[in-house]
Simulated assay, not measured.
Amino acid sequence: MSEKVFVAGATGAVGTALVALLIDAGYTVYGSTRRADRAAALQAQGVHPVVVDVFDADALKAALLRIAPWAVVHQLTDLPKDLNPARMAEAAALNARVRTEGTRNLVAAAQAAGAQRLVAQSIAWAYASGPKPFTEDQPLDVYAQGTRRVSVDGVMALEQAVLGTQGAHGITATVLRYGQLYGPGTSTAEPKGAMPLHVAAAARAALLALQRSTGGVFNIAEDSAEVSSEKAKRAWGWTADAPRA
C-alpha cells in the first residue's frame, strides 16, 4: 500500500502542481479544500478530496485521524489572485491568520494523527536588511512596519509552529521559503520580483523535501543576487529549472 500524503491547499497554484507529482511518484494523495464545489476537480485529478476548513481545529483533527497520513504538506494561502494593491492590507491580514491559526491547527492535527513528515510553505522575502544573497541563517525582519510587519509576523508564527520549541515534535519538519511565484494558477505567467520561482519548481521542492529532507529551513527560488538556494541544491539536488508540468 502506498504512503498517504495530506496536502492542505491542494487546489492552490503550488498544490495543484504538487498533487500531480505526488500521484506520479506513487503516493495516495488526500487534498483539502474549503469549498465543496472544488471536490470534483480534485477527484478528477486522482486526489481523495477532503472538504475542511483549516480554522475548524476539531474537524481538521478528525479528518487527519481518519486518514492517518504518513506526511502532511502545508500549501495554504489566502491571497487574491490578481494581487490588487488596493486589497493587499486586507489580504495580508487574512494570509497571516492562515499562517498563525491555520498552521497551529494543522500541526496539532498532524501530530495527533501520527504523521512522520511535515512540509510547510513560507516566503523568502521576509529577511531583515543584510548581506546578499540572503541565506537561511540570516534573521527575519522583526522591525518591519505596516503591511510588511503583518506578513513577517505571520511567517514567524508559521515557522515557530512548525520548527520551534512548541512545534511539530516527533515529526521531520521542513519549511520552504518560496520566492515570488509565477506560472499556472498565479497572477502572472512570467517571472516577477527579485526572487522569482515557477510553481512547478516550487512543487518539485516540496516533493523532494518529503522524500529527502532531514528537517529545517530552505530557500527555494531561482538564482539571483537577492537570495541563495544553494542549501536545497546541495541537500536534495533541487534545481529551479526542473521540468515544468
Rank of each mutant, 00 (worst) to 15 (best):
W236K: 13
G216S: 02
Y178I: 05
V150T: 15
P133F: 11
Y178E: 08
P139S: 12
G185N: 05
L207G: 03
D223C: 00
A205D: 09
M195H: 05
F218G: 05
V155M: 04
A194N: 14
P131K: 07
L140V: 12
G170N: 08
R148Y: 08
Y178F: 15
P133Q: 08
Y182N: 07
Q180V: 13
T172A: 04
G146L: 04
A225T: 15
A225H: 09
F134S: 03
V162M: 00
W236I: 13
A173G: 03
A235K: 02
R149C: 03
A157F: 03
V227D: 04
Q211M: 04
V175S: 08
M156K: 06
V152F: 05
R177H: 04
E230L: 15
D223F: 08
K132F: 11
A201K: 01
T135Q: 03
P196Q: 01
Y178D: 06
R177P: 11
F134P: 00
H169I: 05
L208M: 09
N219S: 04
L163C: 10
D137S: 12
L176W: 05
V217K: 00
N219C: 03
I220N: 01
V142P: 00
K233W: 12
H198W: 07
A201E: 07
V227Y: 00
A168M: 07
A194Y: 06
Q180D: 13
G216C: 06
Q180Y: 09
P191Q: 13
A201M: 07
A203N: 04
L158T: 09
V150E: 00
R148T: 04
Y182I: 11
S228Y: 11
P196R: 00
H169N: 10
V162T: 05
N219A: 07
Q138V: 10
A232S: 12
L207C: 02
Q180M: 14
G146N: 10
G185M: 06
M195I: 08
R149V: 00
T186H: 04
R148D: 10
A168D: 06
T214M: 06
I171Y: 10
V152Q: 00
A200C: 09
A173S: 15
A173M: 10
R177C: 10
P196V: 02
P196F: 02
Y182H: 07
A232N: 06
Q166H: 15
A232V: 08
S228E: 11
Q138K: 11
L210W: 12
S213P: 05
I220S: 01
T165H: 06
G179T: 03
Q180H: 07
S213V: 10
G193R: 10
V142S: 12
A200Y: 08
G164C: 07
A221C: 09
A205G: 07
A173H: 03
E136Y: 10
G154Q: 07
V155H: 01
E222G: 03
A144W: 01
A221K: 01
T174F: 14
G167N: 05
A157N: 08
Y143F: 08
A203H: 01
D223W: 03
K132E: 13
S213Q: 01
T147V: 14
E230I: 12
A194L: 15
L207Q: 10
S228D: 14
S228Q: 10
R234A: 15
D137E: 13
T165N: 12
L208C: 02
L158E: 10
G193V: 12
I171E: 04
K192S: 15
L197D: 02
A173L: 09
L176T: 08
Q160R: 14
H169W: 12
Y178Q: 11
E190F: 09
A235Q: 09
A202F: 06
Q166C: 07
